[in-house]
């Protein structure tokens, strides 16, 4: 018995020592993200529930007065709208990219470049395109014989400009993710389907969609979270009117007196993002962490 036990203990010891090395290798990176994200997040949450060192809900109670509810609604409108625009455009790009055609390399370069373009560059370009008076978009519209459009005329149209402008930088990522799914579908599947009399729409619904569904949920999760975080784009295009959650946070952060308000708003944003991620992970059935 003793003879058998000894090596097993030694093995366990060796095993745990081996794992210790792996854990030690992972430790610096893990410690880094804990130190620079979990701790700061806890600080923000803690401070948001305190007024003059006392536990209090006063920051939250005064949040509605700073425009919390409209800013949440606006954030949701921009996020959902932008996601729809990006998925539709990305699907179009991915479906084109899987087809062989002359100049496909140049095409994919052109549509992927915006992925690397800075958000501020994008925001600036779209501020030149969409102007109430003059501007590039109205130039085209007038040249085509239509009346110029007042882009920034209501809360909804302001948000519309932001959600549309967001497509440029962010569609390429969605397209690349969806392309990965589409390129794995064998073309013969489409051919046999069309021989069986399936039209383009039916082929799209029965072959394309099921094949990209898991990747679509990944794209929605990854993009959806970033969508709640858009900051630079609305800051340049619409400033603080209408407010979205991030501009509300920043506007109050930049004034010392209202800084606790920004902490409370930041906590609200954090909560929304957590709820969204859990929802998508549950619905999308994301046992999909890298295998």
């Amino acid at each position: 018995m003793e003879v058998q036990e000894e090596p097993s203990i030694r093995d366990t010891f060796k095993m745990s020592r081996k794992y210790l090395i792996y854990i030690l290798m992972a430790a610096p990176a893990i410690a880094y993200v804990i130190g620079l994200s979990i701790f700061p997040a806890i600080t923000v949450i803690y401070d948001s529930f305190h007024v003059n060192g006392q536990l209090s809900l006063r920051n939250y109670a005064s949040l509605p007065g700073y425009g919390l509810y409209p800013s949440i609604v606006n954030t949701l409108i921009v996020s959902v709208g932008a996601l729809i625009i990006q998925v539709v455009l990305a699907l179009a790009i991915a479906m084109v990219m899987v087809k062989p055609f002359k100049g496909s390399k140049i095409f994919s370069t052109i549509v992927i470049i915006p992925f690397g373009v800075s958000t501020i560059v994008s925001a600036f370009a779209f501020s030149l395109i969409f102007q109430n008076v003059g501007g590039f978009a109205n130039g085209i519209i007038v040249a085509l014989g239509f009346k110029p459009v007042t882009w920034f005329s209501s809360t909804l149209s302001d948000l519309g400009v932001v959600m549309f402008s967001d497509f440029w930088k962010n569609t390429p990522l969605v397209a690349l993710i969806l392309y990965g799914g589409l390129s794995s579908v064998s073309p013969s599947l489409y051919e046999s389907a069309s021989m069986d009399g399936a039209g383009p729409l039916s082929r799209f619904v029965h072959i394309t969609l099921p094949n990209i569904a898991p990747l679509l949920s990944i794209a929605l999760l990854v993009r959806g979270v970033s969508e709640f975080n858009i900051f630079a784009l609305p800051l340049v295009l619409i400033g603080y009117h209408p407010l979205i959650l991030n501009t509300l946070i920043y506007e109050n952060y930049s004034t010392l007196a209202t800084r606790p308000i920004s902490y409370a708003a930041a906590t609200v944003l954090l909560a929304i993002i957590m709820v969204y991620s859990i929802l998508v992970l549950r619905i999308g059935g994301a046992k999909q962490y890298a295998q």
Binding site: I30, T43, I249, S277, A290
Partner: peptide, 26 residues
């Protein structure tokens, strides 16, 4: 490893502005 990855994934979702503000104070 799955737990660690899930943890990193959650970190990745933290809103930038929410984290950046306390970091700048540190």
């Amino acid at each position: 490893s799955n737990k660690l990855i899930a943890f990193l994934f959650i970190i990745n979702m933290m809103p930038g502005l929410v984290i950046a503000i306390p970091i700048s104070l540190y």
